[in-house]
Design a protein around this nucleic acid. Structure first.
Lengths: 245, 245
DNA sequence: TGCCGGGATTTTGCATACCAAAACCTGTAT
DNA sequence: ATACAGGTTTTGGTATGCAAAATCCCGGCA
């Protein structure tokens, strides 16, 4: 045989028919579909972990979570496994799930990777942003500055995430965007305690960054983002509750 | 309450006792533990996808996979979900799993991200590699050069992966290493067809790279790796079966 | 007191069975 | 050909059972 035969039952050339229709496939909005339960559970647990209801180190018992959420064990198991793959919980064989205990070293490594990815994304974004995109960036910037003035820490973290996410999206690299999404969400978990003191400088740096993107100056955007994220990393180490040397 | 109460049954301060014993926790080699079935299934399916037994676009039916592998649907479902999160299959709601169809654009984005991550990793590695590490690098290099001389394509791909993986490990950033692991494994899926023509240059570049690491010249290592991975990306676009413009 | 050991208990990991809803396929009538 | 209707397949989820492994508890021993 020139091609190895599939060991599975024959279901035609490509299994079921590949999606093909007379309608354009772009922006094909489907009928509203209820989210799979495992997804809902995933989001619920992630929320409980992020807002510290479930504390780091805590043992998560499938049956308890299932009862609490009113679902069976299966979607809970599936959600826990996804949470593991994204670093929110540790799954010890035959012992189950424990809320991940972030170490200081790990936070540093995460912030370091974030820096590299976001820097690259800023460079790409500067080369692709349209006038409309820049307008949107300024809107996001204003939201953040307002949250800063209002001393709204939660709003500040959200606005920061939104701004970075939008730049990421502008990069036009979906793989990069997905990776940054993963990393940033975890960073946010550690970041909240330093959002306030870091805020003032950070939003000034955002200002510079948007100017660079607006000027389509990729090199400047790259440098500014690099400095920006590295300063955030420094700030983490100088946070109030950092371990004493 | 100053701390929000956990909505789950109380199981003591941190759930079960956190591992604590009189033995050193470093390098604590545990008793041999059989891998969870879901892990075995995951690896089996990944292998079948990489070696093209399961073709891109093919519909994977849980029940068929379960029967073929001699397990129940549960571990298969769990493995499929992990395969999705790592980009090997697409899980369409209410339709099931389909082997991912890599697009040309996606391959380019993946190679681009790989370039960024590997470049950073090379810089870090140059600053940390010991004499022993360098010796090991030369061994890996020799393995690859030998596979090149023997025209052993599979060995070449493996050796290439091993060399890059070792450099990644030298970086000392576990988060970075994990991300590179994910990205590289997918790159390898696309890479095989160009491993041969790219081989000669690639291993010369490895040679330079190891010299830079040996000299602890982080900047040179960074530049060489950047050029190296970018050339691989170019090679992908110039591969024999590339789409005609 | 502090440590050790063995049995009871809990929890995971997987199997099996079952079901509703959704998507698909097929054959027929237009 | 196209559209429709009905039967089939597949997913996603529930419920239950069970063996293996890990933990916990408690009593005996130093």
């Amino acid at each position: 045989m020139s091609q190895p035969a599939s060991p599975l039952p024959d279901r035609g050339p490509t299994g079921r028919r590949t999606a093909k229709g007379s309608l354009s496939s772009t922006a094909g909005k489907r009928v509203e579909r209820p989210a799979p339960l495992r997804q809902v559970v995933y989001e619920a647990l992630a929320e409980l972990i992020i807002n510290r209801t479930l504390e780091p180190g805590q043992h998560l018992v499938e049956a308890d979570l299932a009862e609490y959420l009113g679902v069976s064990r299966q979607p809970v198991r599936e959600a826990l496994q996804r949470l593991q793959s994204e670093g929110w919980v540790d799954l010890r064989p035959a012992q189950g799930a424990f809320v991940h205990l972030p170490t200081d070293e790990e936070a540093d490594q995460l912030l370091s990777v974030r820096s590299v990815l976001e820097t690259h994304s800023a460079k790409l974004a500067a080369g692709r942003a349209t006038a409309d995109d820049v307008k949107r960036l300024w809107e996001l910037q204003n939201t953040g500055v307002k949250a800063l003035a209002d001393e709204d820490t939660e709003g500040l973290v959200t606005a920061n995430a939104a701004l970075h996410a939008f730049i990421t999206q502008l990069s036009g690299n979906a793989v990069l965007a997905e990776l940054i999404g993963l990393v940033d969400r975890r960073v946010r978990w550690y970041y909240t305690p330093i959002a306030r003191p870091r805020g003032h400088d950070a939003w000034n740096e955002h200002d510079e960054l948007i100017h660079a993107i607006s000027d389509k100056d990729a090199e400047a955007a790259e440098q500014i983002m690099s400095r920006h994220t590295e300063k955030t990393r420094q700030a983490y180490h100088e946070r109030p509750d950092a371990p004493r040397p």
